[in-house]
Amino acid sequence: MLLGLFKIICFRMNENIYKIPDRAEWVDLYANKLYAYAFSRLRDHAAAEDMVQDTFLVALEKTGTFRGESTFETWLIAILRRKIVDHFRKIAKECSTSLNELNEMTESSFFTEKGKWLSEERPAHWSSSPMNELEQKELRRIISDCQSKLKTLQQTIFTLKYTEDISSEDICKELEISASNYWVILHRVRLQMRKCIEKNWFVK
C-alpha cells in the first residue's frame, strides 16, 4: 500500500513537469494569446504580429533552454515580454535627443515661478457621477489618443509604468536615464495627460 502511495506521488510529480508541445501546433495553440498580449501593449497590429512571429523563432532556437518549470505558454510570454521592452528601449534610444526633449518639456509651464498652478492650468472639476459603459469607452479612447500624442520618450515611460507595471528603477535601467530625469519626465507626463484628457472630455 505504501508503494502504491509512492507511485501516486511520483505520478503527480511527473505531471508537474511541463512539456513542449509539437512545434507544428504552436501557432494554433499560442498565436492568439501572444498576439493579444502584444497588441494590448503596442496598440499596433503589424508590430504585434511581427513580435509574435519573432517570439516563435526565438523559441525554436532556444527550445533547449526550456526547463519545464512553468508552462510553455508562460515561457513564450516571457520571451515576448522581453521583446516588447526591447522594442520600447530601441524607440527611446532613437530619440537620442532625450535631454533636449527634457528641456523642451520644461519650457511650457504648468506652474508659476513660486510653484502655484497657473490659472489656466488648474485642474477643473470632473463629473463625480459614475460613468456608464459608453462614457467609459469614450474616456478610454481619449486616454489612448492622448497617450499617442505624447513625445516618444514620454510615451514609452508612461506605457512601461502604467500598463506594464515595470518599476521605475527598472525603467531607468532599461532606458538608461537617470532617476532624477525620470521623475521629472514622469511628473511632466502626468500633468500633460491629465490636461489633454480634460481638454477632450470633461470640458467641452
Binding site: 492568439n32 493579444a36 486616454i143 489612448s144
Partner: peptide
Amino acid sequence: EMVDVGQRALL
C-alpha cells in the same frame, strides 16, 4: 483595464 480589453484582440 485598457490592457485587459486589448487582450481580447484576435489574430
